[in-house]
Amino acid sequence: MIARLVGTVFGAGYLRPGPGTWGTLAALPLAWIFMQGGALFFTVATAFVLPLGVWATRKMTDGHPEHDPSEIVIDELLGLWIALIPIAWGAQNAGVAVERLWPGWLAAFVLFRLFDIWKVGPVGWADRRNDVWGVMLDDAIAGVMAAVGVMILAALAHL
């Protein structure tokens, strides 16, 4: 079933312990692949993940007692990809390969996981929606917060 492959990011959501962390790790090489098309391509692909994730989550939770089963990790992919958007644009603007900005990749990963786990502010609000949109939006917001953090850290590193 395609929705299950998408929702679990090719099965990463079934790995234990910490399926959210495994899903975030699985998102890294996929991000690198999509970034090879350029920053605009990666940004558009990231935007496409939101409706794709809503669809997959809806399919996987239809008739399920939980609105956010732990094996659904497409939301982690979305959040991390949002956090990585500044890396894609930064590498393109600098004319370097995206992997050269590895400290930004690390910062995006760590900041995204922290914001996603802590559920601070608007992340917690979205998580409390208890619906398909909440599943995706809390990670999207955590991704935006992580992206801001990545940009701040990059600015500080280049002072």
Results as ranks from 00 to 15, higher is better:
4 R>D: 09
6 V>R: 09
7 G>M: 10
8 T>S: 15
8 T>V: 03
9 V>L: 10
10 F>I: 08
10 F>Y: 12
12 A>E: 00
13 G>P: 07
15 L>Y: 05
17 P>L: 09
18 G>F: 02
18 G>M: 14
18 G>D: 05
21 T>M: 08
22 W>T: 07
24 T>W: 00
25 L>Y: 04
25 L>G: 04
27 A>Q: 03
29 P>F: 02
29 P>E: 11
30 L>F: 04
30 L>P: 01
37 G>W: 14
38 G>P: 12
38 G>E: 07
39 A>S: 12
40 L>H: 01
42 F>C: 02
43 T>Q: 06
46 T>C: 05
46 T>K: 08
46 T>M: 05
49 V>A: 05
49 V>G: 03
51 P>H: 05
51 P>E: 04
52 L>F: 08
52 L>G: 08
54 V>R: 13
55 W>L: 03
61 T>H: 11
62 D>L: 14
62 D>E: 15
64 H>D: 15
64 H>N: 15
66 E>S: 15
70 S>Y: 13
70 S>C: 10
71 E>Q: 10
74 I>W: 00
76 E>I: 01
76 E>Y: 03
76 E>R: 02
77 L>H: 00
79 G>P: 02
82 I>W: 00
83 A>G: 09
83 A>F: 09
86 P>V: 08
87 I>V: 15
87 I>H: 09
88 A>G: 08
89 W>M: 03
89 W>Y: 10
90 G>D: 01
91 A>I: 13
92 Q>K: 10
93 N>M: 14
94 A>T: 08
95 G>W: 11
95 G>A: 11
96 V>G: 06
99 E>N: 14
100 R>C: 05
101 L>M: 15
101 L>Q: 14
101 L>P: 06
104 G>N: 01
105 W>P: 05
106 L>F: 12
108 A>S: 06
109 F>V: 00
112 F>R: 06
112 F>E: 08
113 R>C: 11
114 L>G: 07
114 L>H: 11
115 F>G: 03
116 D>Q: 10
118 W>V: 14
119 K>V: 11
123 V>E: 04
126 A>G: 10
127 D>W: 13
127 D>T: 09
128 R>E: 14
128 R>P: 07
130 N>A: 14
132 V>Q: 07
134 G>V: 13
138 D>Y: 11
142 A>R: 07
143 G>I: 05
145 M>G: 01
145 M>I: 11
146 A>Y: 08
146 A>T: 04
146 A>G: 07
147 A>V: 05
152 I>V: 15
154 A>T: 08
155 A>T: 08
157 A>Q: 03
158 H>F: 01
159 L>F: 02
